[in-house]
Amino acid sequence: MDVLTQNFALYGEGFWGTVRLTVYASLLALAVGVVMAGFRVAPVAALRGVGTAWVTVLRNTPLTLLFFAMLLGLPRFGVALPFELFAVLALGCYTSSFICEAVRSGINTVPAGQGEAARSLGMTFGQTLGTVVLPQAFRTVIAPIGSTLIALAKNSAIAGSFSVVELLSTYKTLSENGYNVIWSFVWIALGYLILTLAISGLFHVLERRWGVAR
């Protein structure tokens, strides 16, 4: 218990760092993931190609490698950003490929006839997707998106190895100061648990409210 009370500020800073990473990267992943899912079902072949390439590259690259690529690669092209922003980009883009596939599977649950009906009424592809298909697709993918974002919260620990202040990296300071390793990790684990339980709670509410009634 001493580890927590004596280092509350350090834990707090780390926890807050993880929360920030999770929230920003989640928003990025959701936005990019939905757009890419739209690309993957678009009538234009070039857009489908972009969507497929995005998912193939990002979903199949180890996240650590992606961090290295962003942190070492982007500065070579003159892109110098704070480490935390790099981390959000890496996490967000990586997770967006999983969000994209979840949303796409949701799109496939919407009967094709409804899309045809929308098009026959003169709606464009974008209008059909936005007003008819996606609202129904989201209802079926609330649970898998929740799981993906929980994975994102835990994946954010990798950012600690890249000089970003987050929860897991607090253990380095603590072990240097001679605290018990096991208790240091227990409190870190609890921090992650608070965050992931909050996410699953949120998605439970969303599902109760918007999920498909059967």
């Binding site: 009967p111 006839g113 409804q114 045809e116 009906a117 929308a118 008819v132 609202p135 129904q136 209802r139």
Partner: peptide, 9 residues
Amino acid sequence: FQSFNLFAH
């Protein structure tokens, strides 16, 4: 359409 295709939501 044969299958109505109303917007279910």
